[in-house]
Design a protein around this nucleic acid. Structure first.
Lengths: 202, 202, 202, 202
DNA sequence: CATGAATGAGTCTTCATTCAT
DNA sequence: CATGAATGAAGACTCATTCAT
């Protein structure tokens, strides 16, 4: 399975080359700490060439972001939509993150660290994507209810958001915040908590 | 209860004045997008005066951050440590966030939006605080297990992290991502999910 | 003979252009009193361009200094090393200064006025060059002793330093201190003093 | 004999206190690198107090300079005017420098390093003092001619300037340029050179 | 008199962007 | 198309000086 964000450069495809170089750079540093020259060098092109393909640094950043986000969303959906039990789908999604992180640990920074900052428009785009994802998760939950896998008295929206939150626990913990090393058992435990809760009384 | 981050300016207390002005500014814009002059103007002081109290813009930002974070952590702990049922404590903490957000909605941005970027040292500080908080939550869960309120077979660390995640669902949803308007019912639903899970089989 | 420090601008050679503009400016004013903008204007380039060729104002100053110093040292040595009587060599060196000053009067300021201040590294460089010059003068004196032109009982180091001092009397007097107008006779008298001393008894 | 520039502070005499503190500071660093705050701290007074006694930093610097210069000139003259053989007077003056440097080595920097820079007015003042000194030395030489100690066919002005130059060889060598350690023999050799020249033929 | 908090003019330096080649 | 030399707007920071206390 393809879980690499940054593919090997295809020479001749300058735009791609620059985009990937930019991603590479934005992974390590702030939008403001990365210079266009740096990106051009990383891409092996001249400074001016960057502006042949992207109207501005800002624009380039946005494209980097959606490039990464698209890849991530695609991975996410891939498992969400498999025809299988809802619990299995959810497990798959979360476990897929482990794999995704293993191959792109450092790289997911871009999505998580830079996310909310910088540009209003990007904000809007992100919110849109998140809403889509949320709706899809809610759809899955509804499917679960239909199949009686899932309690019918839950608040769907909250349950959806909490599910998305699980991915944060995994990604945030592993990548951003404390460089946690999560194993499959821990992730299993996490999903179990989502499924059964922590309370004893029932 | 005091839930205001930014108190009314006490004239004569220049340092506080500047700090609060800076918080105010950093709420709206990036570290890099806020200028020292802007902050000075907001504080009603001269540019040089800022440097009388803070050694650099960076330093000022860090102080803003811990200022906000300290306030938040304090609020958080206030409910965590109350002598009451574990579930009640957890509910209190989460509900307290509703209140906190109501009074400081825009202001909590600083904690969430700027969090991971910019300064390594701040990163370290944040991770440290988060670990402390996590340990306290885990402590609470252990208490819950002792009292048989909480299942004894859960993965404590994951349960702790998932609990912290609830606050993200609330804050993230309400403040950062989609400007959601959560009501008490919804938050109740969320806590219920944490407590009982979403699954039907048991 | 080429005795001009600052050649006419060769357009296209931006680095040279800026360097010469900077020399021009540093002649009139302090390192601290000259601004980078001023230099840029004098050079007819944009402010940023200066930084394309020199990493900092400090660096630019250092290059100005060695530029001038190199030129001076070269002139100095040119006469020192001619195959002729030692006395003639010495006269040539000193007289050459008259010529040098005539063409670069104002410009030698840079070497004399700014000399000892500002940068430790430059200090070291100057001391090194001076030592070299001193050794060369001492070599000349030794040659003089071998040829019996020069008394064999003199303190070589002191004699060398005193010779260098003659150039100071000329340069210092003419350029820096009192804007003296020395003629060939006066300089002849000076060299005569160096050669014969002032005392009557022998 | 009193050869210390900087006397012990007399408390209560704020002006003196500040002046001496400033001298102390200007010895180590540039005019531009020394801050008024630094001087105030060194003097043990408040920043504002400096301005009670000196109208500006510039003014303070000028006073420092003349303070040092006056002391130096006084030492210089002290020996120049003694009723004794001209050669002895000259030796005394030069040797006195050795003593002066021993006690104020680092401190004479102010006179030599900072001398020509910064302020036109100071320049004028220095030139004036130097002219006076030159005239006095020329007077001494005339006395020497009258007494037949000194050759009557020398260029007086040049001889005077060369004599002043001797002090530069001593001071410059010892203090500024190469931190030379001159002993009495070397200085004797130097004076001998001035007196007898370096040439063999006579 | 003495102070030091407050100030803002003045500088260096960075870097996204342009455009002539 | 590709380039990189040139640019200047923008911003952090310093520090001499003032003035209210």
């Amino acid at each position: 399975m393809q879980t690499q964000f940054v593919k090997t450069k295809e020479p001749g495809n300058k735009r791609e080359q620059i985009l990937l170089a930019a991603v590479e750079k934005f992974l390590d540093k702030d939008f403001y700490q990365v210079t266009v020259v740096e990106i051009a060098e990383q891409a092996g092109v001249g400074k001016g060439t960057v502006y042949e393909y992207f109207s501005s640094k800002k624009d380039l950043f946005k494209e980097c972001f959606s490039y990464c986000a698209d890849f991530y969303l695609q991975s996410f959906r891939q498992y969400l939509l498999k025809p299988q039990s809802v619990r299995k789908s959810m497990e798959d999604v979360i476990f897929a993150h482990l794999e995704l992180i293993k191959d792109n640990r450092k790289r997911l920074h871009l999505l998580y660290n830079e996310r909310p900052v910088y540009f209003q428009e990007l904000q809007g785009w992100i919110i849109g994507r998140r809403q889509e994802l949320l709706q899809e998760v809610i759809g899955l939950l509804e499917e679960g209810i239909r199949l009686k896998e899932v309690r019918s008295d839950i608040n769907l929206e909250m349950a959806g958001r909490l599910f998305l939150s699980l991915t944060y626990v995994v990604m945030g913990g592993m990548i951003i915040i404390d460089n946690l090393e999560l194993n499959q058992d821990q992730v299993s435990g996490l999903i179990d908590l989502y499924w059964h809760g922590i309370g004893t009384e029932k």
